[in-house]
Amino acid sequence: MAAGTKVIKKPKRTLADQSFVVELVKGLGVTFKHFFKGLNQMRPGGPRPDVTNFNYEDGIATLQYPDEKRPYARRFRGVHRLTHRANGEPRCTACLMCSTACPAQCIWIKPAEFPVGHPSRGHERFPEEFVIDELRCIFCGFCVEACPVDAIRMDTGIHMTAIDDRGSFIFDKKKLMSIPSQDGDFVTSNDRPEPGDKNYGGITRLQGH
């Protein structure tokens, strides 16, 4: 026998070990312990951990999605919405910054000029059509970052779930304007007043400046 070799004796096996019956019962004991613990937690009114702290508390580790949902952070990027002006028109000026920034190229906008006589004519333009393909969207939020006038937001809190019809992922202007924020707001926080508006603070040539 070579020097430095350690000899380990073969452990002795009893009949109980050899038959596996005892160990099997022990193992099933652990399984059933957790089974009944879980069963207890699952019963109505049972001691379930809060969904928010699910990861940090003892107990069952499975969230019963979609019956149970973990609440999203307020800054969660949900499906888009288009904000309104005070008068209910879209705040969007159809600048195409969002569609330029969009890495998925899923925003399509057709800009248009306000009709003659409209107070915003010359000062603004508006999106005649505004379409987002939510299926192509990667929810990066670049569009919201790019918007110079707070016209597009992703603060709806809505997680787009699977629908078996692709067409319903194409959100048009009407649809985008019908979605409120998670607090129920529609109006933009950047409602720039224009000459002629009541809350307009500027000086115009007509005021004899």
Partner: peptide, 10 residues
């Protein structure tokens, strides 16, 4: 100050 305003979209 508010800038000078002049006609737009003429």
């Amino acid at each position: 100050d508010e800038p000078q305003h002049k006609p737009k979209g003429q």
